[in-house]
Simulated assay, not measured.
Amino acid sequence: MKMGRGVEWAVHSCVNMAWTPAGEAVNSARLAEYYKLPAAYLNKQLQFLVRAGVLASVSGPRGGFHLARRPENITVLDIVLALEGPEPAFRCGAILGNVPEPDLQENFARTCLVSQTMRQAELAWRQALARQTIAGIADSMERRFPADKLKALTYLAVE
């Protein structure tokens, strides 16, 4: 499984927004500058999160983005699905139907042990991401690296 770089960027951005006081928007250009990321590409990822209901956007001179829901109600899976889409990582092509003399009544995508193995693994992966919330990550980061929250909030503060 390979995810785009935008997933990492979006999770970090959401953690920063979880630390931001309620109602205060984070400017995406400032966020991109903080992490030394391409601003247009980060903004595109944040727009995907807006469409998925993870973020809300605020226009105007103090505009930007903020969490649309409480951070304990936003999972890493929400972010991954918003950016990568809901399609399964493994797509069974039912190639068992191509072998000589296949059982034509068989639903190979359903009964194939390779397909079952891959679906079970993906289910476990999705369940693990669904258990991880932005609030949990933000709290853990703050405990392990207490200076990071203050540094981020100071840098990202609306001037």
Rank of each mutant, 00 (worst) to 15 (best):
S115T: 01
G63E: 03
C14Y: 06
D148T: 14
C92T: 06
A138V: 00
W125M: 11
N98C: 08
G6Y: 03
A157H: 13
R143K: 15
R131A: 15
L83R: 05
A128L: 08
A32N: 00
E72Y: 09
S140C: 10
R110Y: 01
S59H: 10
R70P: 06
P21S: 02
S13W: 06
P146A: 10
M1N: 02
Y34E: 04
T20Y: 08
L83K: 07
T111L: 02
P102F: 06
C112N: 07
F108K: 02
I79K: 04
K2Y: 08
G64I: 06
P61S: 12
F48P: 01
L113F: 07
E159Q: 15
A10L: 05
Y155I: 00
A124T: 07
R51A: 14
Y41F: 03
G53P: 06
D103W: 03
P21Q: 05
Q45D: 14
M141I: 09
S140F: 13
P21R: 12
R62G: 04
N16H: 12
V15Y: 03
A82K: 09
G97C: 05
L67A: 03
R131Q: 15
E8V: 15
K151C: 10
I74L: 05
A25T: 08
Q120T: 09
E122A: 10
G6A: 05
Q120S: 12
E72T: 06
W9Q: 01
S59K: 14
